[in-house]
Simulated scan of single mutants.
Amino acid sequence: MLAEQDLRTLQDAGINNIETLASAAAAFLRAHPIYTVPLMPNALSEQEETFLRQGGAIGVGGANKDAASANVTIIAGEYAQMVATAHSQQEVAARLSVSTSRIRQRLDSGSLYAIDGPSGRVCPQFQFADGSTLPGLESVLEVISREAHPVAVQRFFLTVSPDLESDTLGRALSPRDWLLTGHSPESVKLLAREL
């Protein structure tokens, strides 16, 4: 059972149905059984392992199942959160004032980003602002590999990049904020090619 504080945190993030979150996480794990990949051992010498253990390091030597489990939990949780807060095709159509068939066309052409949820393809929130998509979104999506992991794509758009230093604002921006503030998508496209 989740603590009341955890439930409030999820509700603040727009997740009102825990079953949807768990279902999306389970669907992700079925589609991407990353927990079945053999664990890689630490690539340290015996002396390095001994030195680190003496210093209090945890998880040194051999495969660390706890760390691997924690990583799977984090990635599945992020994916589930993306699905639980994403917009349905009908919601996107209403938001962009177009038909659902136009949304399907954009999804098929790759000019909108979609992920698979328990109820079909949904569109993560990071690509929208007000009543439209991010300026330059289509050109950025064109260069992102279709093989890129959905969590990596969301993190890419939302994480501040030192390569996107805005002279106007005097600070580094995330790709999403870079596009929202009217900067050229070309810089974001260069970074997106690496995904």
Rank of each mutant, 00 (worst) to 15 (best):
M1K: 13
A3V: 02
E4T: 08
E4R: 08
L7Y: 01
Q11I: 12
A13K: 15
N17Y: 02
N17C: 00
I18M: 14
E19N: 12
T20K: 08
S23A: 15
A24W: 02
A24L: 04
F28K: 08
A31R: 14
P38E: 03
P38W: 03
M40F: 00
M40P: 00
P41R: 08
P41K: 10
A43V: 10
Q47G: 15
E48G: 12
E49P: 10
Q54R: 15
G56N: 14
G56S: 08
G56W: 10
A57H: 13
A57Y: 14
A57E: 03
I58R: 11
G61C: 05
D66K: 10
S69I: 07
S69W: 07
A70F: 05
T73D: 11
G77D: 01
E78P: 06
E78A: 09
E78L: 15
Y79W: 04
Y79V: 07
Q81F: 04
T85Y: 14
T85L: 13
T85M: 10
T85S: 14
H87F: 09
S88P: 11
Q89I: 14
Q89H: 10
Q90K: 15
A93P: 15
R95N: 13
R95M: 14
S97T: 02
S99Q: 13
I103K: 02
I103C: 03
I103L: 00
R104V: 04
Q105T: 12
R106N: 05
R106V: 00
D108C: 04
D108G: 11
S109H: 05
L112G: 03
I115T: 10
I115Q: 08
R121A: 13
C123E: 06
P124R: 07
F126M: 07
Q127I: 03
A129K: 09
A129T: 07
D130W: 11
D130L: 15
G131Y: 09
G131T: 10
T133H: 09
L134P: 07
P135Y: 01
G136N: 06
G136Q: 07
L137D: 06
E138V: 14
E138G: 10
S139V: 04
V140D: 02
E142S: 06
V143S: 07
V143H: 08
I144V: 10
S145L: 00
E147N: 05
A148T: 14
A148Q: 02
V153G: 06
R155P: 11
F156L: 04
F157Q: 00
F157L: 00
V160T: 10
S161V: 10
P162D: 04
L164I: 05
E165G: 03
E165H: 11
S166T: 10
R171C: 11
L173M: 04
S174C: 12
R176D: 02
D177M: 04
L180T: 01
L180F: 00
T181S: 01
H183Q: 01
E186Q: 12
L190E: 13
L190R: 14
L191I: 03
R193I: 03
